[in-house]
Design a binder for these strands. Sequence first.
DNA 1: TATGAATGAGAGTTCATTCAT
DNA 2: TATGAATGAACTCTCATTCAT
Lengths: 221, 221, 221, 221
Amino acid sequence: MRKVRTFSSDTDLVNQRRNHIVKIATEQIIKRGYNNINTRELASALGMSTGGLYHYIGSKEDILYLIINFTSDLTCQSLSRFADEEKGKSCEDKLRDSIRNYFEIVENYRDFHNFVNHIMLSLPVKDRKIVYKAESRVIDYYEELIADGIAEGVFEAQDARLAAHNIIVMANAWANRGWFLKKHYTLREYTDEQTDAILSHLRRSPKKNGHKQLQPVKQKA
Amino acid sequence: MRKVRTFSSDTDLVNQRRNHIVKIATEQIIKRGYNNINTRELASALGMSTGGLYHYIGSKEDILYLIINFTSDLTCQSLSRFADEEKGKSCEDKLRDSIRNYFEIVENYRDFHNFVNHIMLSLPVKDRKIVYKAESRVIDYYEELIADGIAEGVFEAQDARLAAHNIIVMANAWANRGWFLKKHYTLREYTDEQTDAILSHLRRSPKKNGHKQLQPVKQKA
Amino acid sequence: MRKVRTFSSDTDLVNQRRNHIVKIATEQIIKRGYNNINTRELASALGMSTGGLYHYIGSKEDILYLIINFTSDLTCQSLSRFADEEKGKSCEDKLRDSIRNYFEIVENYRDFHNFVNHIMLSLPVKDRKIVYKAESRVIDYYEELIADGIAEGVFEAQDARLAAHNIIVMANAWANRGWFLKKHYTLREYTDEQTDAILSHLRRSPKKNGHKQLQPVKQKA
Amino acid sequence: MRKVRTFSSDTDLVNQRRNHIVKIATEQIIKRGYNNINTRELASALGMSTGGLYHYIGSKEDILYLIINFTSDLTCQSLSRFADEEKGKSCEDKLRDSIRNYFEIVENYRDFHNFVNHIMLSLPVKDRKIVYKAESRVIDYYEELIADGIAEGVFEAQDARLAAHNIIVMANAWANRGWFLKKHYTLREYTDEQTDAILSHLRRSPKKNGHKQLQPVKQKA
DNA sequence: TATGAATGAGAGTTCATTCAT
DNA sequence: TATGAATGAACTCTCATTCAT
């Protein structure tokens, strides 16, 4: 977690201003690109002066990290909320509902999700970790849900990890491939169809072709 | 197709130099970011002088379009190659083989694919069209393949378009989510599992829940 | 004497705060340089708020003048103190003692002396005058002392002005050439040796080489 | 010796431009102060564009180091020239002539000398070393000259090091205390009088007061 | 009196692009 | 065709100063 400089010691004010910065900056950066918006214009869009902006951040780049952290926190919070809400439901319902919830979050915070996916490649590798970590938690959550279903005999044995990963990928696709998907589907339709596909796969016997128990491949540098 | 200025009239030389530019620039931009590499360093990485570079391009931004076009052409060429190779095979084999081929192409030209996905969000909407078009052709190709299968009764009626789209999304995931996928799977494993999932879904009866005949939603701005 | 703005009418408070400002600011400026310390940090080092600092000064530059005035006053006060203390002593003792006293003052207020010498070149020529004036008074003091000695026949006729000037130069050298002098001498040793050199020169016949009666050269702009 | 960035690999051009930069920048900085002149104005005074200036330096601060190095080199070169010229002369003549030469150099390169003395206090301690080194060589040169004279019996035993140091201090005084000295003396007069004072001291017996054999004081941090 | 958030002009530096050679 | 020095607009960031509280 990168430390972002501020000249203020009023924590509430700093948080308030930074939330504002995150919100507006994400909009602007998504719309125009990080490198096509300069700090003067950004400050102006924020209703602040250039100097004022730098009261709450240390550098333009810091804004990227604020946004990433914000999105990361958001995702983690949503996850715990799911976990609470799903208690007591059947495995299939749990999965179905939490997929729907997750897709809705991605829709609502589409800018943030696109943003994070977009800039990740511009960041030094070490700073991508925070994004990986947040995503890994989501993957783990779904993986566990699926594994529970397998344990309960609701789902047939499958690669729970890949299935979980596919859920995240499909959610991201909704965020950043809207140019295609929104032409053909509403979020509801997209969610239902993808959920069906996932469940149909999990419920039935896979073809046996010997790679069910995968050995973890040694991690690449 | 954006026209890129050149001062040379030797078409072969221009093509040769531009291919070189596309190759090296993609590497460099992926590694360091478009805005973190300047024309001096780029020219130097290309073994040219700054002025020399400008004999073959009109502006730094042109390089982005050269790369997009290159990747786009590449994808389209691959597609026609598949089409030829797959002739006479069964529907399932066609699908299975062309997925494998496509995933391999994405692996081999991973930088280009990541690059295109990455900068797309930085481009003005009108310039994204060329990427959309190339992707649409791939989607159409798979959609048709699946539709044929449905027509032949090999696959049960499903949303062929979404299934096709999922294939592209899974291929892209291999390119830009390597941080997760390569930790757990080889390309071969990933390909096989995803293909199984797709086929298992296409082969069996879906739950009927009424959204099979989707009306095209009016396109969002 | 430059007028420095204040918002306070409590003269004692203003003086107290300004003395504090002079003391701390000199330290800080010597350590880090006038242009490398900003008003925020300076105020913080002073235990004040930025706004608070501006209650007692009109501008950052005013601090320089406060320091110069302080140092200037200090030197003049010391001088009158010498004059009182030296009454009734022999010429040679007067000179010897007041040199020792002056060197000690320079040592004790080394930061101030270095500071003044340092920033003089950054000041507009007109503002250097105040420093010149204070130094001129010191030179005059020593020149008179030496002239008295010559009149009394204790010293042989010499250029009293240059000898006086050399004393000031040697004192300054102790302040700003400490990197060399403190490696080889204590203040006591330095003082004694330099005093001996001065006295040995004043006591003996100089070589006659015709430039004893110097015509004042017209002052350069 | 700080490495200064350049984008050119044409050594001659770089040297030519840097010499120009050193000359003009010294003038400007002495006249207006390092912090009161910005790179735009400096470039303009140099007859270059801002960008052009940065072709030959890496930062504004680099200019300070170029000037220091230039002055340092100059002093060292002068020194070797003296050494050659003085061969075969008597000790006293050697000293007298090399003092005159040194004072003349200081007069001719007064701006550079003032500059170096001025900014030394703004530099980080480690970067002052280069100045110390150059000055130390000059001090050593005079110390040796005086020590030779003592060995030959021309001078009486004295603290050769301090006498040497005084020569440098007197030379610097001519450079940076012109406001006083030039009002009263020509360089020739100043040189002759100071030389006489130095020689008169070296030639005669000092008062014995026990600090002739100084123990080196332990160096201060 | 005192605070510190806010201002905005101006600083140093970069870099896409041009053009004389 | 090729070079790389030169340009200057535009960038990020700083900071002396003010003023509402």
